[in-house]
Amino acid sequence: MNAVAVEGVWKFYGDFPALRDVNLEAASGACLALIGRNGAGKTTLLRAIAGFSKTGKGVIKILGTSPREPATRRNIGFIGHGIAVYDELSARENLTLYARLYGLPDPRQTAIEWLERTGLERVRDGLVREFSRGMRQRLAVARAFLHKPSVLLLDEPFTALDDRAIAVLQSLLRDSLAEGRTIVLSTHQLREALELASDVALLVRGQVAFHGPCTPEMVADPGLVYRRHGEG
């Protein structure tokens, strides 16, 4: 069974089709890199896969069920454009909140473990509004990973990350793949993404222009997919 299956999905904003008959799948343990120019539909597709918005037509299944099923949501980790943590709460309070929402057995201990793992244990009681950008991003990574999701949906996860946050994220992603989790990530940073990816999908104006395994040729020349299947 595919961990993520997208079948014939259309998504309209008004009359504009942001996604046009998208068919994609990612097997369990795979890392699918969604690439494409700005406005190609990567974020729209990831948000639809995460269940944040309904599609016009088509079916999306995660682990064989709808992404809106509570049991399925327990298995999804999402990093979007925002860090999705509260500025008015401390780092520990934020992670404890999400650990509670995901029904983890020991929310406070889980929060502390993830603060240590992301190098934020020294500022655990500091309010997020006082954090630097890099610290906020590491906290966002901890928030997305703390419930050990089977499927990770990451929208531009490397964008604007500092070196330390990139190292933390890459290490977590490699560990996740080693543990058999599925990753779908959209990115413009082809080199970082293709080093991790087992599959690549290129979106061009809401359509899948290419979907296939990530080859050593692509890793060596990240622009190759665009030249062969994209718009140059």
Binding site: A50, G51, F52, P70, A71, R73, R74, I76, F78, G80, H81, G82, I83, A84, V85, Y86, D87, Y98, L101, Y102, G103, R143
Partner: peptide
């Protein structure tokens, strides 16, 4: 509106709560 900064509403909608 409290959920708008940092896209916190996305994380709440993604969480397994009704």
């Amino acid at each position: 509106a409290r959920e708008v900064p940092n896209d916190c509403l996305d994380a709440l909608v993604a969480a397994p709560i009704s």
